[in-house]
């Protein structure tokens, strides 16, 4: 009997109190869910409506365009997104962020898969010591400034490598991979070893294909983390604005008191009128925000499958 069937049989007699409770819970969740997603929707409609109407606060629940009389009617436009091409410095941030998301995530996944496999090897010299050596770094850090001085010492300031190399060893992900590999029947590995495969070959031919689900999990979480990265850019890239990540760039846009429209470079293919309406700072902020949210929303449906696996495995430490 499934849980639902049980619930059905259990709830045959429902009192008035039960009904009120159920309705209250449904209303509660509906309101909270609305609060969770409405801001995203509001952000979206503000980027696809007529900018004058946005400025005057007319766009509240549906996207509006102006009709001949100047009143708002339902409609959408994407000029704001097209005009982003002319926003200064945005292109390099997008490029840097995409590059670090791809390279950084790939390196992190490979390292985690490799280290996670090796720490399952009981034969390794001082295995449990080295495993603890890696894991303990999750609970202890030297502090922000010593970390910064260390990066400075390594020459990893104003350097793209600072985005990808320190993130390669992710202890939590190593634990996830290790736990997963330990659940793979050892006989598979043993038979490959009997057939003469070495450690690297076993890893490539047996372990990697079998641990695709967990690697996909850490890859997708790692990619989101890289896409959202802000702090390392803020701390390390002081003299290299061209290496700012998208979030850092957005942070600067959100805080700039000057009119962002003035930051638009001249020329471009956008008509003068569109460019003039882009002089609206808020709209640029909203549009850039939307651009950095969209990729997350796009991968979100794929991520969902991995949520529970990611969290539940994490609960099994060791």
């Amino acid at each position: 009997m499934s849980k639902k069937d049980i619930a059905a049989t259990m709830h045959i007699k429902r009192s008035a109190g039960d009904w009120i409770f159920d309705i209250a819970v449904i209303i509660l969740f509906s309101v909270f869910t609305f609060i969770c997603i409405f801001p995203f929707y509001y952000l979206l409609i503000n980027t696809i409506s007529d900018n004058d109407l946005v400025t005057s606060g007319k766009v509240n629940f549906i996207p509006l365009l102006k009709n001949a009389a100047g009143d708002g009617v339902f409609g959408v436009q994407i000029n704001n997104y097209l005009a982003l091409r002319n926003v200064q410095d945005l292109g390099s941030s997008v490029l840097v962020t995409v590059a670090r998301t791809i390279i950084g995530t790939a390196l992190m996944v490979i390292t985690s898969a490799w280290a996670g496999y090796l720490v399952t090897k009981q034969k390794m010299w001082k295995r449990s010591f080295w495993y603890r050596f890696l894991v303990i770094t999750m609970y202890f850090n030297a502090g922000l400034v010593p970390w910064y001085m260390n990066m400075l010492m390594m020459g990893l300031t104003d350097n793209f490598l600072a985005y990808i190399i320190p993130g390669m060893v992710a202890p939590y992900n190593i634990i996830l991979v290790k736990t997963y590999i330990e659940s793979i029947p050892a006989s598979l590995e043993e038979s490959a070893i009997i057939d003469g495969a070495g450690t690297t070959k076993v890893w490539l031919k047996i372990i990697l294909p079998l641990s695709v689900p967990i690697l996909a999990t850490i890859a997708i979480f790692g990619a989101v983390g890289n896409w959202n990265s802000f702090q390392d850019s803020l701390l390390l890239m002081n003299n290299s604005p061209e290496l700012y990540t998208l979030q850092h760039r957005l942070y600067i846009y959100l805080n700039s008191s000057s009119n962002l429209g003035a930051m638009m470079s001249q020329g471009g293919t956008v008509s003068e009128q569109a460019a003039a309406s882009m002089l609206n700072q808020r709209v640029i902020q909203y549009t850039v925000s939307m651009v950095s949210i969209i990729p997350i929303l796009l991968v979100y449906p794929f991520m969902q499958r991995f949520f529970v696996k990611g969290i539940m495995l994490g609960a099994v430490k060791g």
Partner: peptide, 24 residues
């Protein structure tokens, strides 16, 4: 549906949360 939609905010950065705070 509730679970899906209420988890979304967890995956955006604080900078974006601030952007949302501004727009609201």
């Amino acid at each position: 549906v509730v679970q899906t939609l209420t988890t979304i905010p967890n995956f955006i950065s604080w900078v974006l949360v601030y952007a949302i705070a501004i727009c609201i």
